[in-house]
């Protein structure tokens, strides 16, 4: 209960809630008129964008204490997986869209 209260009174929390609500509308708005032919590349592009989770892994890895091997290994793996998501996602999307381009 206290936590819910803090979500609504703490300025930082409240700002994040506004970001969330507005981002939901933006997310729906920008893809609403997408033609069927672009569904696959769009899904793939969105897939790459949620790779932004890599920033969390960088923050975690950058603060991992030198004497905690387990945390370091987990953090390192998180960076590798996050990069795979970002790079693989964007490259695959670009490959798909490249085919659309050379139509003429």
């Amino acid at each position: 209960m206290e936590y819910i209260q803090s979500l609504l009174t703490d300025a930082a929390h409240l700002r994040m809630i506004y970001i969330i609500v507005l981002s939901i509308f933006v997310g729906i708005e920008v893809i609403e008129k997408v033609p069927t032919i672009l569904h696959t590349p769009l899904m793939s592009g969105a897939n790459a964008i949620h790779g932004v989770v890599i920033i969390g892994s960088i923050i975690v890895m950058g603060q991992a204490p030198a004497d905690d091997i387990l945390i370091q290994i987990l953090g390192f793996l998180a960076v590798v997986f996050g990069t795979l998501n970002v790079v693989g996602g964007f490259v695959v999307t670009d490959r798909m869209l490249e085919m659309f381009k050379k139509k003429k």
Partner: peptide, 8 residues
């Protein structure tokens, strides 16, 4: 980024 993808 996360919410955009979650919504879209």
């Amino acid at each position: 980024g996360g919410i955009l993808v979650g919504a879209a």
